[in-house]
Design a protein around this nucleic acid. Structure first.
Lengths: 218, 218
DNA sequence: ACAAAAGTGTTGCTGTTACACCCATGG
DNA sequence: CCATGGGTGTAACAGCAACACTTTTGT
């Protein structure tokens, strides 16, 4: 019966849109194994807790983070994930619409990385990030679901949204068509405010018009 | 440390398209608990096996089944899933394009059920089937992915395909538009054969034109 | 001949693509 | 006044929805 005992851990991939890029939260490991490498936030699962509870706990430990969506993702059960003993990893995806500029001033063992430019990662976390990010990107560009919506709070400009969207999609889109699509179909609502950073004409600040998006595809 | 030991099981939801309906494979439980109830095929996970291996083993035990796709799905970690002790369930989805008519002659403790007309189910399997089926249906009608393609082998008629599609979608579609969509866009290839069952004009037998489907949406 | 099931044609609408062009701000 | 970036206009085209109509089989 003993050989049916398994150890599980919850792994959370926290994503945010920052400077048009899809970013992920990592922390630097302080002890062996993989000391000095970067890893995803994770925690072992005791047998009195659900995986969802465990995932939320991990996020609660992070100050300043307001997760907007959290959902279960994949399970990694390869025998050699951990050098010491077998641990089965369950990944969760969390998304925050938080502005990262103030969070970046935290200590330098916690940081946000562009998913395309990752540092040296411990365990199988590189593989996990690659697989999960691929799925997340696919979700973002497929339709107006929680994935897509959760990255942007109220008050974004269409060029901002487009910049992020293009990076996730991996190819450029016509600026003018992108704009009209959202405005003509009333997928966004004018908040009445404007941006005023840098040169050039200020952009209109919008928020999503969830009702109009229902049932539509990007 | 002991309270970090968890017991896992792999649960496989095997789907097929039969008589235009989305069907799922169940077996009748022979012992307590839930004796006489129907359950999904499942097996505990020992600590030397991956979940994927375990899922495939379950399918291999079924004679006559050729799974065409198999992929990991959700994790159910509620504390009260099993009346005796806590077992974490990992669901897998398998799809077969097998014709079920010959499989139905099996013993009467194994059967295929319409996902809309399920029998009395043991454990939390009703909940699992409901959640997973909802996702599977969503996948089927979203784009020409493995989900959609795996249900039909070569040699199907467009009305057959439409019948299944309508049932999954939950609403009728115009027969003529459906036909033209697939033929005009060359999403299917004429095999040169015809059906010859029942009255009415025989239908052309097609197979999918995977190349043309790449990147397109239903 | 008639019912039943499969296949074709036409029209208008919606949304996308590929463009040229105009407007508002900072230096 | 000009570079920079945001916003508007238009025409061609593809795909979808809503129809009427024709063809091929079994009885």
């Amino acid at each position: 019966m003993e050989n049916y005992y398994n150890i599980l851990e919850t792994i959370v991939l926290i994503y945010a849109a920052d400077e048009g890029k899809l970013k992920i939260y990592l922390k630097k490991k302080q002890d062996e194994p993989y000391k000095g490498y970067w890893i995803l936030p994770c925690a072992p699962l005791d047998n009195q807790t659900t995986l969802e509870e465990n995932a939320h706990k991990i996020c609660e430990n992070m100050t300043n983070l307001n997760e907007t969506v959290m959902f279960q993702n994949k399970i990694f059960s390869n025998l050699d994930r951990n050098p010491n003993n077998r641990i089965i990893g369950v990944s969760f995806v969390a998304i925050t619409d938080k502005d990262l500029t103030d969070m970046k001033k935290e200590d330098n063992d916690k940081a946000w990385f562009d998913v395309e430019e990752l540092p040296k990662l411990g365990f199988d976390h590189a593989e996990i990030i690659e697989k999960v990010s691929k799925e997340v990107k696919k979700q973002i560009v497929s339709n107006y679901n929680d994935m897509f919506l959760s990255f942007f709070p109220s008050d974004f400009t269409l060029p901002e949204l487009q910049n992020f969207y293009e990076n996730v999609l991996g190819k450029p889109i016509d600026r003018r068509n992108f704009h009209k699509k959202f405005v003509n179909q009333e997928l966004v609502i004018d908040t009445g405010f404007k941006t005023s950073k840098g040169s050039g004409r200020p952009g209109t600040l919008y928020r999503f018009n969830i009702d109009k998006m229902k049932g539509k595809r990007i």
